[in-house]
Computed example of a mutant assay.
Amino acid sequence: MNTDVAPRLGGWQQAWRLVAAAALGFPFWLSTAAALPRGCAADTCSWLVTGDPLVALGCLTALLWRRRFPLAVTMAVAVASGPSTLAIGAALLALCSISTRRRPVEIGVVALVYVAASQLTLVLYPIKTPPGSLPLQLALPTLSAGIAAAMGVAVGARRVEVWSLRERAESAEREQSAREAQARALERNRIAREMHDVLAHRISLVAMQAGVLDHRDNLTAEENRTLIRGIADGSRQALEELRDVLGVLRAGPGRPEPPQPSLDRIPELVADARTSGLDVTLTTTVSGKPSDGVGRTCYRVIQEGLTNAAKHAPGAPVHITVEGTAGDELHVRVHNFPPTTTTTQPPPSGFGLLGLAERVTLAGGKLSHHRAPDGGYVLTAHLPWPDHDHETRS
């Protein structure tokens, strides 16, 4: 993990830190002045009132670049704190600042330089020290350096923790946004699929019947009435089914859905297609009753096949074969022959077979569609049919 997490400081934050550093160095400067012999400050010890404040001012100015050159600025200020006791506050601030990086070797080197530089005060000024006081002279700078380093490490750890929490929050927001986007996409796909399954079949049959009325002028009055009645009934059923689908999509989680199509309703689907003018033949050899999911998918395959036959092969015979056995597979085949009449076709949606392929894949089956050798079109689906009854008895 990158531990060098330093926030950008504003102007007022920089200012109060520099003021705090100057205020921290002032007690050290006063204690040094108090330890000097009387009258020394105006004579041999004039450095205390001239050079010491100037060096401290230079150190405070150098602190403005401690974010850009942390190690170089900290080392320079630590060395300068030896001849300038007023710069000790700047040195401690620099040490605290560099300790936020939490690099032990770096902190140790800077602290050692700071403690060693603090002993230059005894060289510059004639301060009398009792014999054996060296440990005491090292204790105060060592203690101050330790406190500054500990504060810097604590601040650095806090910054890393805040940065980590912020990253987690941002990551959680991104994941939530991604989940919401995925949920919206899935919902749009579900709505589109349901709309297509409900409307495409009915509207295709209505369009086929309207095309027959438009292109054939040799129909009897009874045939015309049958086609017109079929258009009216198909339109009404399409509106009713659309209302049911919209009601489900708008309903809350507790609202029950209307009955879904199953294998038992395939003869009814074929009968509606025949009423609308399609020449449909259904052959069913199914032993047993598949699950609702398999039956519904089989229904949708046949519905899509009849819809495409009504769109692209008006007047052509359609052969539907459904066969299967529990414990094996359920095979569905919809074969429409080449069109026998020419009518104005509705614009293709291009999503029917895509949505159907998704349904079949989710059911664990395989879907294929291709042009037949006779010029027609073949749509086939192979759906797994596990024998749950046999497993239950076992």
Rank of each mutant, 00 (worst) to 15 (best):
P348S: 12
A273E: 02
D4W: 14
S118R: 00
P347E: 15
V198I: 09
R101P: 02
P373K: 07
W385P: 05
A310D: 03
G252I: 07
R229D: 14
H369F: 12
H312F: 14
P126Q: 02
V286Y: 10
T361D: 14
V198A: 10
G11K: 06
T392L: 14
A183S: 10
N308Q: 10
G156P: 01
Q182A: 14
G132H: 05
E173F: 06
A238T: 03
W47H: 08
P346A: 04
W12A: 13
Q303N: 04
E106L: 12
L60H: 05
I147S: 06
A178R: 09
T341W: 09
L24R: 00
A34L: 09
V212G: 00
G315I: 02
A72P: 06
R300D: 14
H319I: 15
L353T: 06
G146T: 09
F351H: 10
S262P: 01
A72S: 13
A20Q: 02
L199R: 05
A76N: 04
P7L: 09
A310I: 01
A78T: 07
T321G: 13
H382D: 15
L282W: 03
E175W: 08
F69C: 12
P130I: 11
E223K: 07
M75P: 06
A91V: 04
E323R: 15
R190Y: 09
R17D: 07
T283H: 14
P373D: 15
T32V: 11
E358S: 11
S31K: 00
E170H: 11
L143K: 01
A76K: 05
Y299A: 02
H335G: 05
L269K: 03
A210F: 01
G146F: 03
D264S: 15
H331G: 09
L122T: 10
S368E: 14
T129D: 08
R179S: 10
L120R: 05
P339H: 12
V115D: 03
T220W: 04
G211R: 03
E329N: 15
R188S: 10
D43S: 11
S133E: 12
V19N: 05
L143S: 07
Q137E: 13
R225L: 05
H312M: 06
P135L: 08
L356C: 03
G315D: 06
I191A: 12
A271S: 13
L239T: 07
A221Y: 08
R67C: 09
W16G: 02
R188K: 09
T220G: 13
G295Q: 05
V77S: 08
L93K: 00
P130R: 12
L63M: 06
K311G: 01
S84N: 03
E329G: 08
T32P: 00
V105I: 14
T284D: 11
L205T: 05
S171D: 13
L330Q: 08
Q209F: 00
K289A: 13
T380Y: 06
H335I: 05
S394V: 10
Q14Y: 08
A139L: 14
R300C: 04
T281H: 13
R38Q: 11
L63E: 04
G252T: 09
T342N: 11
V109L: 13
T343N: 08
L71N: 13
A381I: 03
P141F: 05
R66E: 15
P135D: 06
P141A: 06
